[in-house]
Computed example of a mutant assay.
Amino acid sequence: MSTEIIMLGMAALVVVGILLHHPSRTFGIPSLLIFMGVGLALGNGEFNFVYDNLNKTAWVGGLALNIIVFVGGLNTCNDKIKAAFKEGGVLASFGVIFTTLFFALIIYQLLDFNFITCLLFAAVVSSTDAAAVFSILESKKLKLKEQTDSVLEFESATNDPVAMLLVIFLTEMALSSTQTIPAHDIALSLITQIGVAVVIGLVVGKITVWLLNKIQLSEYGLIPVFILACFIISTYGAEMLGGNILLASYISGVMIGNGIKRGQQVNKHFFNSLSWLAQALMFIVLGLQIFPQSLITIFWASVLPALLLIFAARPLAVQICYLPFIKSSWRKRLFISLIGLKGATPIVFALIPAAAGVPGAIDILHMVFFIVLFSVVLQGGAIAPLANRLRLNDG
């Protein structure tokens, strides 16, 4: 298939998704489902077109996630981080680990998978999704009491390193039944990924801010272009040095967003548009990768695990993580327990073992699709009513 046809096809799918976006908001349907539905409806056999490339899909999904997380960092003020980093940091680390363990124990009793595969499945869906959290909170214009929205945003933007590391290690273990990975190797890799990402994100972010404030570009349109180039240097530079690319994206975004003094409006509009483009392309490509005929057989097998993740594994993990924070109200704890939004991140993570050829990984990918679907519909739809019910809405 020629490059021209691919470009025309993707542009047409984006146009269709955007045209459906406004009526979808009228009915409260998240944009994630609209764009993914466009990919599902128009690919994989319809119109004599079949898309099946796990590696390319994973690459597109990873790139889009980097952009979305970076833009989320640009729009996050330092005050929110100062108020949320303790609780959000515990949820982003121990919360992911506890969720993985609890959910693995649950699905080990339900599914015909060995325990390593169950751990891998659980790790894939253990983190909350930054794109889903940022977009749903923004679309519903929610401002929550007790900095609850800030905690959710901080958690979702910083919990991917732990989840990604678990997915990579467990994928390696699933491919080699005789291979065991020492705990100190996992800890060292985690420290390296976080440490390198923090250093590179901070350094590149500070240099970017200093240069922009020092030079004071007369052409405002060059400011977002300059920031985009620095974003690429920060994220992919961190990855080359062994750091976590998503964490580097978020940190550099926070540094730049809070540091630049000129061109903030043009910068905001440019990167918000870029974030929407990234979301559209990512969800459409993910939709194209999913084969509808394969989903029918896996739907009912996904219902119970999805509900147990939402109402058992995630709440239990959050409640344990909140034991040190005795001043947090039960309303806040309950809300964060029940609002662990999933989005494109688990699907992108599920592509890692699928592309590597882990036995059963394709079934996991399809089940993750439904878990994300249930999460977006149930948890995404419950955010505003639950906030009102618990009297956390500060709007």
Score class of each variant (00 low, 15 high):
254 V>I: 15
254 V>Q: 04
256 I>R: 00
256 I>C: 01
257 G>H: 05
261 K>T: 13
262 R>A: 02
262 R>F: 07
264 Q>H: 11
266 V>C: 08
267 N>A: 01
268 K>W: 01
269 H>G: 02
271 F>V: 05
272 N>F: 04
272 N>W: 00
273 S>V: 12
273 S>N: 13
274 L>M: 14
276 W>R: 12
276 W>M: 12
277 L>H: 04
280 A>T: 05
281 L>S: 07
281 L>D: 01
281 L>W: 03
284 I>W: 00
284 I>M: 02
284 I>D: 00
289 Q>A: 04
289 Q>V: 02
292 P>N: 02
292 P>H: 02
292 P>C: 04
295 L>Y: 07
296 I>V: 14
296 I>R: 05
300 W>Q: 12
304 L>N: 05
304 L>I: 15
306 A>K: 02
306 A>R: 04
308 L>W: 00
309 L>S: 03
311 F>V: 12
311 F>A: 10
312 A>I: 15
313 A>S: 10
313 A>E: 03
314 R>W: 07
315 P>T: 11
315 P>H: 06
316 L>F: 11
316 L>C: 03
317 A>V: 12
319 Q>I: 13
322 Y>T: 11
323 L>N: 00
329 S>D: 09
329 S>K: 08
330 W>Q: 11
330 W>C: 01
330 W>G: 13
331 R>T: 11
335 F>R: 03
336 I>A: 03
340 G>R: 08
340 G>Y: 09
342 K>N: 13
345 T>R: 04
345 T>E: 13
347 I>C: 08
348 V>G: 04
348 V>L: 07
351 L>E: 07
355 A>I: 10
356 A>T: 13
364 I>P: 06
